[in-house]
Nucleic acid binder design. Structure first.
Length: 202
DNA sequence: CATAGCAGATCGAAAATCCG
DNA sequence: CGGATTTTCGATCTGCTATG
């Protein structure tokens, strides 16, 4: 089995290379810092991707890999535990999603499981997702809140949004607060990534 | 370190709009 | 019409961060 490990962290690259080569007895293990194009994984069967900084691009490439060759097994590591990224990854169809590598045996178990064709996802994230769905159903955004969400998602600050919608900054803040509550988000970064992964701009 | 600016929460309340 | 919901706005407070 040809394995590719992707991580910007040399610690993770080194550690996983060692685990795959020694513990899992897989000599054909390559490591790189980032995914740049699909052609990098041409003869790879198993990919472990640690997405930390350039999430959007890394996920895009993972998506195109999965689209053209769904037989390649992919595990995503997202230490920041981003719910929106998790959702996207599930949609794409990655086989595994982990937020931490705390236990060696557990990690090996997950890898073996995925290699054998099964799937493995972080239970906490599944739970969060279900809770979130429930909340989302209970609280739909109003028309105005959606407008504010779209503009905030594009990166405008409160004052700019107010100008565009002909309302004061205070009102924008009010809408933003409601959006946080209804969508279970915490801050602007959440809004932007939510907007990115949920196509609210129509 | 002081401060300026932005983000966000909370409380309160009035006007506008929707809907049975 | 009349109640419910949405939209609007202000004041005030806390926390973060960039800048000098």
């Amino acid at each position: 089995m040809n394995i590719l490990i992707v991580s910007e962290s040399f610690i993770i690259r080194d550690a996983l290379e060692e685990i795959f080569k020694v513990q899992l007895e897989n000599e054909n293990t390559k490591v790189i810092k980032m995914l740049h194009s699909q052609s990098e994984v041409d003869n790879i069967d198993f990919i472990f991707v640690d997405i930390r900084n350039d999430v959007v691009n890394q996920i895009k490439i993972v998506e195109s890999i999965k689209k053209t060759s769904p037989e390649k097994k992919i595990i995503v590591l997202d230490s920041r535990k981003r719910g929106s990224v998790f959702k996207k990854a599930i949609k794409i169809g990655v086989e595994g999603y982990v937020v931490d590598i705390l236990d060696r045996d557990e990690f090996i178990y997950i890898v073996k499981k995925v290699m054998s064709g099964k799937k493995s996802y972080e239970f906490d994230l599944i739970q969060d997702m279900l809770n979130h769905e429930e909340k989302h159903k209970k609280y739909d955004l109003t028309r105005r809140e959606e407008e504010v969400l779209n503009l905030a998602g594009e990166g405008f600050n409160n004052r700019e949004i107010g100008k565009k919608l002909y309302i004061t900054e205070c009102t924008v803040k009010k809408h933003i607060s409601n959006i946080f509550m209804k969508l279970n988000l915490k801050n602007r970064k959440d809004i932007i990534s939510y907007a990115k992964y949920n196509y609210i701009n129509k």
